[in-house]
Design a protein around this nucleic acid. Structure first.
Lengths: 190, 190
DNA sequence: CAACCTCTTTGATGCAGATCAAATTCTCAG
DNA sequence: CTGAGAATTTGATCTGCATCAAAGAGGTTG
């Protein structure tokens, strides 16, 4: 699985990639693999890299009263990191865990900084790809505020039908902010 | 109230502003004023500009069963627009309403496009300032999922203490996803 | 200053979903 | 295969908040 086959096409949705940028990128990303259950990032450290998921499934979670609360799922074609920790270079509460055997392309924060400084189109890529996440977050906020458990689950099915069968339901429940029991009843149609 | 006094210092939190960029910016922003209750943007149109609030208070809302649901408040030092409409150049559901007499600096989408194309540091500014909104959205999602009405209100007081006394409580309630009655009881300490 | 808004509070009732407990099914290591 | 732990479902009870209804409290306009 080559970077040229996954990462570059992803980026080309937003920007044209020059030969120089292509070379700089491929020189700096490192392939990485994680087994099921393995942590890509531990909250006790500062997050110093971003991983582009080529194959597999990752969740972002944090601990609340000893329980793991899922904040986000990321599958093929998405970058994962601990957002605030990565940006501010400080520890944060989030862990990243591979839910399946996962292959990524890993980019260190200082290499990303170099790319931003050297290739203005990288700034544009980051701006545009962040923008597309924005709409999702706003939809999610609306869904959390004003919908029943049944509607929340229906909305999740709509927006995540591709990964739904790969997810344990307890994680889906905490993502939706409902209990596992309620999710089970909703699925059974009650 | 000069752009040099409000917008430029805001941007300088993130980037250094060259003389050329300064001039380009000041040439393109237009001062605008809105009375209390006036719409900065109507959902029936495509949102073609962003407004930087110099003085005043604006809310983003949408209609749900004929009721106005507040999605966001923006005060001095923030950009407001209808995010998806502005980015995708399509209509969306959101209205922007001035809650107080409001003065803004207004920038047309095509002028912003020109600035992005001409000044790479503008791309960086957009990327970094969006990044800082991200953390807030994630906190808000957590607050919506797992907290009682009382905790939601406490979190709102923490994060919006500067504008709280300027807001009608019904708008705060819909922002928090609780009813006005519940908010009233929570504030009374019950 | 009275009449009429809009905003906020108070009261009574009902229900969706949390919580606690236990049974059932799945899954995978040995 | 098989047994143990994890994931999921089912059941019974309880509660926080929504809903419906109406009464204060401001505030602004002729």
């Amino acid at each position: 699985m080559l970077a040229a086959d996954t990462l570059l096409p992803h980026m080309e949705q937003y920007i044209r990639i020059s030969e120089a940028l292509r070379e700089a990128l491929l020189n700096r990303v490192r392939v990485a693999s994680y087994g099921k259950g393995q942590l890509l990032h531990d909250a006790r450290h500062v997050c110093t890299r971003s991983d582009f998921v080529q194959r597999g499934l990752v969740r972002l979670y944090y601990l609340r009263d000893g329980e793991k609360i899922t904040e986000y799922f990321s599958a093929e074609g998405e970058w994962v990191n601990s957002p605030n920790s990565f940006i501010k270079r400080l520890p944060d509460i989030y862990y990243l865990e591979a839910l399946e055997p996962t292959h990524t392309l890993s980019l260190q924060v200082q290499d990303l900084g170099y790319l931003f400084d050297t290739f203005p189109e990288m700034e544009r890529y980051a701006r545009l790809s962040m923008g597309s996440v924005f709409g999702h977050l706003m939809d999610r906020i609306t869904s959390l505020r004003f919908t029943s458990a049944k509607e929340k689950y229906a909305h999740f099915c709509d927006t995540h039908h591709d990964i739904l069968p790969r997810l344990p339901l307890g994680m889906v429940a905490s993502y939706l902010g409902i209990t596992q029991e309620t999710l089970s009843r909703v699925r059974a149609g009650r």
